[in-house]
Simulated assay, not measured.
Amino acid sequence: MAGTQYTINVNTGIDDTQIQVYLKKLHKLSGNMSPAMLEISEFLHERSRDHFDEEQAPDGTPWATLTPETLARKRKKGVPVNQILHGEHLHLRDTIYPFHSIDMAGVSTGPGTSAYAATHQFGDEERNIEARPYLGLSAEDEIEIIEIIKEHIDRKA
Rank of each mutant, 00 (worst) to 15 (best):
S34Q: 15
H91T: 08
G13W: 07
K28L: 13
Q83R: 15
D50W: 11
R73E: 08
I129P: 01
G31E: 06
D94I: 04
I84K: 06
P62C: 07
P133W: 08
T109W: 08
N82P: 00
M104N: 09
E125Y: 06
I40C: 12
G110I: 05
A36R: 11
A36I: 10
T109K: 11
H89W: 07
S30C: 14
T67G: 00
A72P: 00
H91S: 06
D59Q: 03
I8A: 09
R75C: 02
K156T: 05
I146K: 04
D53Y: 05
Q20M: 14
L85V: 02
I14C: 03
G110W: 11
Q18E: 14
E130W: 03
G31C: 01
G60S: 04
A36Q: 11
D53Q: 13
K150V: 14
T17E: 14
E140W: 01
D124C: 07
S41A: 15
N82V: 01
Y97Q: 12
R75M: 07
T109I: 04
A57Y: 02
S41Q: 10
T65L: 03
N82Y: 00
E54S: 09
H100K: 08
Y116E: 05
I149E: 06
E126S: 14
T70M: 10
E151N: 15
I19A: 09
L92T: 01
H89V: 02
F99R: 03
G110R: 09
E55I: 02
E130T: 03
F43M: 07
N11E: 13
G106C: 12
D94Q: 15
Q20H: 13
E130P: 09
K150W: 01
Y97K: 10
S48P: 06
I14F: 05
R93Q: 11
H120F: 06
I146F: 03
T12S: 12
T119R: 12
L29Y: 14
H152W: 03
L135M: 14
V79L: 00
S101T: 15
S138F: 07
G87N: 06
E130Y: 07
L26F: 09
E151Y: 01
P98D: 11
E130K: 11
N9L: 04
A72R: 14
D50K: 12
S34F: 02
G136N: 06
Y22A: 05
F52H: 08
I129N: 09
Q56E: 10
Y134F: 15
Y116K: 04
V79H: 00
A64F: 05
V79F: 01
F99G: 05
D124V: 00
A118R: 12
E46N: 09
A36Y: 10
T7F: 12
A64E: 13
L85T: 02
S101I: 07
I145E: 12
R49T: 08
I14G: 01
T67W: 01
R155G: 03
S108K: 05
P68K: 13
I102E: 01
S34H: 02
A139Q: 13
E39G: 05
A2R: 06
G123F: 03
K150M: 08
E147N: 15
A118F: 00
D94T: 08
E140C: 00
T113M: 08
P68E: 09
E142F: 00
